[in-house]
Design a binder for these strands. Structure first.
Lengths: 205, 205, 205, 205
DNA sequence: GATGAATGAGGATTCATTCAT
DNA sequence: GATGAATGAATCCTCATTCAT
């Protein structure tokens, strides 16, 4: 089942410590600025030991990214089907979704940074995520929960960009809780910024 | 007046070519992955010439960031006063603002990436920008153009994150024009995503 | 106990070889003219190995100087107390002292050159040495073995300068033995050059 | 008459400034540590101008050394013949000689350091100087002014080493005057250090 | 005579990676 | 499984020197 090493208990432990250390260092300083020696220092091992578990520095990056993708898949699969919601439940559901994403990001903050900033696949991953969101949005649109006339790809980008930026700005440093942040974000995304809306902007019958 | 070198026309040219080349390389490959030799190759000079104009690789990064900040300041100073707008003019004005930002980002795309991803000051700069936007939002809010009950800091982050992400996604690669993108973004940000709004969400008298 | 590296026998050996090689090269060609590549070549290692043991080229110089100072301290501590000598024993004792210094210099010839010519501390070290000699001279003076009317600082400088210069000139290249050289130097320093001395220059009663 | 350049007045001036600057820098920091850019900076010229007057950095060193040798020759030629002195005049004469040498060194302090420390010819020059002194000593010996039983080469080394070291130590930094230093040195060199001399050490008849 | 620009050939230092134990 | 020692291939930066004006 296990991919490469980790035959023994102890080896498994070491390998894990290396992954954690690498995630942290990559997140803090970036892939290039992080030296293998930094990683092993943080993991309490020697350089040579690193190569017992990973064939190269790049390899551990890929593994971290792979792990993130795996987490993401798990998270994505827990996604709800949407169609059955009553219109009045949509806002709360959406708010909850945002909170869930925030919680997910918080739990994987190091991996997030690695996957989204340091990985060569960053762009691809970004699009995977916004793709998921877009798909979800499309379902909601089909269900009539989302306004006509919106570009759904932009909507998706807007949702994720806002969540992601807000997480970096207030969530990861503990300045705001996932719950509060989710409310504030939802409030903007759901009803927009403007105080006044044009005359003809009425709810569809 | 002139900072360091470049007393003569030719020197000025060389210095400029180096800045451009560095911006491009940093934007494409990142600061660390970019070698000084890459920069000078792209600029058609030798390594030694680089150090005629910049004391170190880091220095040219700072200069690029400084240049971006300068551009930003120029752009920011051209910002409109907001209060006098009639409510009905607000949406169009806002759409125009977004288009202006997009155009600014497009014109400085390399610098944007350098300043926002590669610079040690990235976070600071990010906050400078969102700070500007937040300030603008606050003025609009005072003028009654923006809904009550929104967290303005989140609004600002939302605006910039969306614009920035969209620029990276569709503007820089030419998939969408600034004008179109601005419309699509404005549409989301102004009125939100939801098709239905709660009963009590009525325009204030 | 051990300073930096060299936990194992082999490492210790390598570190030592580097020190020796550096001493030799610095002594032969001077600090600046000696390349790290010269040192490692002479030590049979690669450039990178050098930095396993020393953080910089300058660092190995300091260590060499430190080693010299250490040797010097050891040598200095073995210095005799002087007061108890009978006047008739003083010349022989002094001659012996000179020979001891010569032998010390010979044994540490590379270090001597490094410490006295190549080190930034050269002046300080020079003064340390002459300081020791001056102190010794002062004791001898208090014991009545040294003439009145001499500037003891000049005496010390004279002694060391002569010994040092003579070592460079005849000892290090094997042209004269320490024993012979000590005799010849002592002969000059003890009784001076002049054949005739003034009438009133009589031994004190 | 002039060697290389210096056709015009201004050129001559520039060339001279470069020599002076080089002497000073070499003396202060050593040949290798001194950059051509240091020299020209101190001389108020550009790097390219340097090569108008000297084919290389090494060349200016040689010229400085040559200049020193020239000065030395001039100084040496003014040396007195010695034989005719009455024994009672010898000490004063010798003291005067020492003072003259000190004065010469002081006047050429930069060149001295360059020639004696930084030049590849340093050893040769050193021997030239001690050779002169030895020759002078031999004359004095022949004239009966110098004791039997001394190794004249050691005597010469002793004289010069003492003078040179003392100059570096007290003369160049102004702590002692040439006159005073000459007295103190002469006192040691002439009669030695010991307070008591053996019974049989009597002036020769 | 003098300059600003430019360069070629290093030189110190770093770092991912391998080897022997 | 783990280590200390060692390495090769860069990479940044320097500096004496040349060129065009």
């Amino acid at each position: 089942m296990s991919k490469k090493r980790g035959r023994t208990e102890k080896g498994e432990k070491s390998r894990h410590r290396l992954m954690e250390a690498a995630a942290e260092e990559f997140a803090r300083s970036g892939y290039h600025a992080t030296k293998v020696s930094d990683i092993v220092k943080a993991a309490g091992l020697t350089q040579a030991a690193f190569y017992l578990y990973f064939p190269s520095k790049e390899a551990i990056l890929s593994e971290l990214v792979a792990e993130f993708k795996q987490q993401l898949r798990v998270f994505g699969d827990s996604g709800s089907n949407v169609t059955a919601l009553a219109p009045s439940d949509v806002p709360a559901k959406m708010r909850q979704n945002i909170e869930d994403v925030l919680t997910f990001l918080l739990k994987n903050r190091e991996l997030v940074r690695v996957a989204l900033y340091e990985s060569p696949e960053a762009t691809v991953i970004h699009e995977e995520i916004t793709g998921l969101i877009r798909e979800n949005a499309r379902k909601n649109w089909l269900a009539g929960h989302i306004r006509e006339g919106l570009a759904l790809d932009v909507v998706a980008e807007c949702i994720f960009a806002t969540i992601h930026a807000s997480a970096e700005r207030w969530l990861f440093n503990g300045e705001k809780s996932a719950k509060q942040l989710a409310s504030e974000i939802a409030e903007v995304l759901q009803y927009g910024m403007l105080a006044h809306r044009p005359k003809n902007d009425l709810p569809k019958a």
